[in-house]
Computed example of a mutant assay.
Amino acid sequence: MMKTPDPHLFKSGRDFAAWMGLTPKDHSTAGKTRHGVITRAGDELLRSTLVVGATAVVQHARNGRGRNLTPWLIGLIGRKSPKLVAVAVANKAARVAWKLMVSGERYQCVAPPALTAVAA
């Protein structure tokens, strides 16, 4: 059973990720933008499944067991806390899933160039 509405109802993958609750709350005033915790909108089970899967990816990357690590992920692990990185990876996975659902294409993993060091 599909847990998402028709993907064509969303204008972009960003809107789809926001519907899932994988974007930060916006606390803006007087032109200052402040982002808070994730919104937790959408289906809780679907969101938590994506975050748990992303957490596993982050743990493997931090322990040096990850394969096909991108420079984006390695840089994020070096700058942010593991939980924040997991939500960012889940957000990215949701956007990819939206694109695949809308286009009807199959996922094709494109291996990044070999990386020698992993940020711990």
Rank of each mutant, 00 (worst) to 15 (best):
M2G: 07
M2W: 06
K3D: 10
K3W: 08
T4P: 00
P5S: 11
P5W: 02
P7W: 00
P7M: 04
F10N: 01
F10Q: 01
S12L: 04
S12T: 14
D15N: 10
D15E: 11
D15S: 09
D15Y: 04
D15A: 11
F16N: 03
F16H: 03
F16C: 05
A17S: 10
W19C: 05
G21Y: 03
L22W: 00
T23Q: 04
P24T: 06
H27S: 09
S28K: 09
A30I: 08
G31H: 09
K32P: 06
T33E: 13
T33L: 14
R34C: 08
H35E: 08
H35F: 13
V37E: 14
V37M: 12
I38C: 07
I38P: 03
I38W: 00
A41W: 08
A41E: 07
G42F: 00
D43P: 08
E44M: 13
L45R: 13
L46F: 10
S48E: 13
T49K: 05
T49M: 07
L50W: 03
V52T: 11
G53H: 07
A54Q: 03
A56K: 15
V57P: 01
V57K: 05
V58D: 01
V58C: 05
V58F: 03
Q59L: 15
A61R: 02
A61W: 00
R62M: 14
N63R: 14
N63S: 14
G64K: 06
R65S: 08
R65Q: 11
G66W: 00
G66I: 05
N68E: 12
N68S: 14
P71K: 15
W72D: 02
L73M: 10
I74F: 02
I74L: 14
G75F: 05
G75P: 03
G75V: 08
I77L: 06
I77A: 05
R79A: 12
S81F: 09
S81R: 14
P82N: 11
K83D: 08
V85L: 04
A86I: 03
A88I: 12
V89I: 12
A90F: 00
A90I: 01
N91D: 08
A93E: 00
A94C: 09
R95S: 10
W98P: 01
K99P: 01
K99I: 04
L100G: 06
L100Y: 02
M101N: 04
G104N: 08
G104A: 07
R106K: 12
R106L: 12
R106A: 12
Y107Q: 06
Q108F: 11
V110D: 13
P112E: 13
P112S: 15
P112D: 14
P113V: 15
A114S: 13
L115F: 11
T116Y: 13
A117M: 09
A120T: 12
